[in-house]
């Protein structure tokens, strides 16, 4: 069965916790393991933080959206901003890369997402916003086979 939710919120850092808790609650109905739930909350936090800090340069008054789809035991997440975009996506995906070293960023956001999810697609163009699509197959079905 397919189940979908959509949420849109202001680009302020208070909403990073709101976003991961909201998605965590929605995904909970698939009965994920504690590790899987942590992984999903972490990737939501990473992508939403990127949208706020990088997409919108820490300016409030913009919107970040998340679409989450549960399809059998797969979780799909699309996290979107209408911000400045990424000029070089391959560079942004490199471990330790950060466009804002002055902010003490670790540069590990996308690396963590790649590790925690099965798929990661970043669609971005300068001045045209960024869409981060991620997918993860929960372990339930593979464990019981």
């Amino acid at each position: 069965m397919k189940n979908e939710m959509y949420v849109e919120f202001s680009s302020i850092s208070e909403n990073e916790a709101f976003a991961r808790v909201t998605i965590g609650s929605f995904v909970a109905q698939l009965d994920p393991t504690m590790d899987e739930l942590t992984e999903i909350k972490t990737v939501v936090s990473e992508a939403v933080t990127n949208a706020i800090i990088h997409g919108y340069n820490n300016e409030p008054g913009h919107l970040v959206s998340i679409t989450c789809t549960l399809d059998d035991d797969a979780v799909e997440l699309t996290i979107k901003d209408e911000g400045i975009g990424i000029s070089n996506v391959d560079e942004a995906r490199q471990p330790l890369y950060t466009s804002k070293p002055e902010l003490e960023r670790s540069g590990m956001g996308f690396t963590i997402i790649e590790n925690f999810m099965d798929n990661l697609e970043i669609i971005s163009l300068p001045d045209n916003g960024t869409t981060v699509y991620m997918k993860k197959q929960l372990s339930k079905k593979t464990v019981s086979k």
């Binding site: 942590t38 972490t42 936090s45 990473e46 933080t49 902010l103 003490e104 960023r105």
Partner: peptide
């Protein structure tokens, strides 16, 4: 109970 790459950034700093 939760940490992400922003937390790592502070620790690295």
């Amino acid at each position: 109970s939760f940490m992400d790459s922003s937390g790592l950034g502070v620790v690295l700093g």
